[in-house]
Design a protein around this nucleic acid. Sequence first.
DNA 1: TTGTAAGCGTTATCAT
DNA 2: ATGATAACGCTTACAA
Lengths: 350, 350
Amino acid sequence: MYTIIDVARLAGVSTATVSNVINKNGKVAQKTEEKVLQAIKELNYIPNHIAKGLKTNSTQNIGIIVEDINAFSSSDVIDGICSYCEEFGYTVHLTNLRVHQKIDTPPTSHYDQLETSIEFKTSIENNINHLLSSRISGLIYIGVHPRDVSRLIPKLDIPIVYAYAYATEEDSSVNYDDFQGAKLAVDYLIQMNHQKIAIISGPINSFPSHQRLLGYQTTLIENGINYLPEYIKIGNWHYEDGYRLCNELLDLSTPPTAIFAMNDLMAIGVINAAKDRSLCIPDDLSIHGFDNLRLTDYLRPSLCTVDLQLKTIGIRSAKVLIEKLTTQNSTPDQVKIPCKHIPRDSVKSI
Amino acid sequence: MYTIIDVARLAGVSTATVSNVINKNGKVAQKTEEKVLQAIKELNYIPNHIAKGLKTNSTQNIGIIVEDINAFSSSDVIDGICSYCEEFGYTVHLTNLRVHQKIDTPPTSHYDQLETSIEFKTSIENNINHLLSSRISGLIYIGVHPRDVSRLIPKLDIPIVYAYAYATEEDSSVNYDDFQGAKLAVDYLIQMNHQKIAIISGPINSFPSHQRLLGYQTTLIENGINYLPEYIKIGNWHYEDGYRLCNELLDLSTPPTAIFAMNDLMAIGVINAAKDRSLCIPDDLSIHGFDNLRLTDYLRPSLCTVDLQLKTIGIRSAKVLIEKLTTQNSTPDQVKIPCKHIPRDSVKSI
DNA sequence: TTGTAAGCGTTATCAT
DNA sequence: ATGATAACGCTTACAA
């Protein structure tokens, strides 16, 4: 592998000149530049970022720590990050924490286990140190579920952005908007003339659940609809919760005409429970999901849901991080990306 | 950020000794080692891999080029790679080519477009050069669909392993076993007493289609079942193909009792087509998929399918690569990981 | 506009 | 067992 010295020799110039050509620093005569470029091409010279990084004490490397690359949300977020980084010449170092192998059953509300697990914290610290050894200039931490992860991450000297997760008020984060997303869903159901709208929530101690519930309540109130406690069921994000709680709702003396499940997995449980009671969807019951998982448009009926704009979250996290890197501005940036409503067949006007 | 010199000073030893401690080279007295370790901890010293890489002219970095991280297969493969790399102390540099944004409609057989697209080849070469600038020691290329990608990748001086893709006979690759996977499906259908087994294939010019078709034919012949040309339909991996071709099959004078679709997406099309003809699945028609996509276990009926063992493919690719790196052995290794059968409700014994 | 040379943080060779 | 020091490939004053 050739070095800058080989190029300089071949072009008959000094290494400084070659360096100036490579880094487009100007101050090189047109003709000299051509000679250098020609030599670079001839030798098929590839600059050594390692040596450059050592000298400049800065790299165009950014680290991604993803809690679980197999979470449905992760690949879109990473995709967004990569596309922005490629554009600006940054290299991405990926670390996968694989949390789902380290806690009981995914997805669960018991991420608390993680926060208290010494083993997990040590694993994160090792991974961060490893990334730091590569002198990454910044870090994006991608959660499996938006929640406060501040206790997991040690204080770092490099900028860090939380995507699909958040930390303290001093930290930057990029997330979708739970409140607005839930509002989108409930607004749509009301627009479809539903009044008896039940909700199947995630665990109450979860931040997204709480925000979405708030969106639900606010929208009902705004529309002068009675807010019925028996229409609120608490699940744990699983398919089985949707199935079970749908049955509970339909057993009510005044069953709802529409059910808003806080994630698509529970919504599918709701669909199947309704089917098993020989209900026809959406004629007998409208069902609204949240997440816009893949394949939900091929379900029968296709699932009306809310898209989280995950790729945008990724792009934006990278943007926030790279701005911190280039402007040294350290004011925290807590971005909320609006969700997008995906109307589909599982909701019908009554 | 502290350097090895700071540690040496604090511990009252030379930098060489500190280096020997860090790299566990032996030849350091127990007592000296303790002093050094203590100093490292005290300063919270993090070794600079960049400087080390410059000196040793070798890194523990491996590059991943993934054609599309949003392909259903990619994240599992990457997960596997990461888990192996973490264990052996390698850092992963991720590059996402995003092919689906660069060709018409995914997934398609027209990946040929890519091979002939100058723009795409240039993009790959730029990305490879960028990775090479970081002096990665090896490369894993992950395809969106197993096929010959040799025309896309320039000859490199570092080892490269193709995962979920392959190249020439001189190149190493790790894939699932199309032939065995198809055999698994057809064997199971026959075991469930089906004789009239139709197949909805992918494009005939696709290698996986061809291999799976071979598995289908072989298994029928082994079991003395007539091989009927009208039971073979050619689709293009899309949902719509499954839907349309299912109807064609059911319109036959002697319709099949079981349909094996070569991917889950087409299988879902088959399910929906059958439902739209008021057929009951699996009572009136058994349906077998291939891929084991997420959510297929929540379909009604749940989809009987074949799992590609993608994570294993990832682990194995990393293993093959790292062995090349550490043993300098360059004999190509073309691994086929056996698929796993996933019995579910969409297939029933008759 | 171009060249010279020091130095970034390590490792490795050679002394001691 | 430990230390002194050159060298890895590059950037960047500073000199010319």
